[in-house]
Design a protein around this nucleic acid. Sequence first.
DNA 1: TGAACAGTTGAAGAATCGTTCAAGTAATGG
DNA 2: CCATTACTTGAACGATTCTTCAACTGTTCA
Lengths: 112, 112
Amino acid sequence: MAEDAKQRVECAQSIRDMLPDDDVIYNLAELFKMFGDPTRAKILQCLQLRDLYVGEIADILEMSISAVSHQLRVLRSAKLVKGTKEGKEVKYSLDDDHVTKILEYGLTHVNE
Amino acid sequence: MAEDAKQRVECAQSIRDMLPDDDVIYNLAELFKMFGDPTRAKILQCLQLRDLYVGEIADILEMSISAVSHQLRVLRSAKLVKGTKEGKEVKYSLDDDHVTKILEYGLTHVNE
DNA sequence: TGAACAGTTGAAGAATCGTTCAAGTAATGG
DNA sequence: CCATTACTTGAACGATTCTTCAACTGTTCA
């Protein structure tokens, strides 16, 4: 019946209105995507322990410097880490208070 | 010098030892990946408001039932939602207390 | 029984992702 | 200066992801 369809559409609309704006959800997804790759998750966990040079991170993760640098660029663009040039080395550090708490929360979940 | 290299390796090892096990990090990344797609993030937010049938979710998100069903399968396999058959419909609900809190935390971050 | 409805599933294609490799920049030290 | 070290960058690749489409399984009810 046409009435049913109309009501269904209205109901859907009212729930849609309660959701955050599309760009908020998009940003939210972008944020979580950063934690959604094992390499990036590891990099962030390393940086929780202490600030590190690119080469150090590569040593810890046993990955190429290039691969690490690419991921650091992604994390930088998400404003989760920042790099500071020190001579010919670049020291990376967390750029966001939330990182630790989000990771922590995820970890307690994973560990049941 | 060989000593330098040895010490660098040992230092990397000691930090690596402080990180969670690889499979924990892998699971952590898998969890965050679930929130890292806008469609899935929206589905989870809908289900925070109330339990919903597949068709209702499709109406709310203005997506095909098939696309929604595929994502529900992914969320189900991650144990974040569960589906209960009711006649010919299937009602989905959140299957995890952490979901709300993780999303909430991400949202407060995104909103500065 | 069989038509209509609700949802699942598999294959396919485009898009995105993560790593590697090779080439580049920038700072340091001989 | 030139070589070396530390890192960045761009192109290329294979792998994964998300949606669409078509075919399918159940369930209801006429």
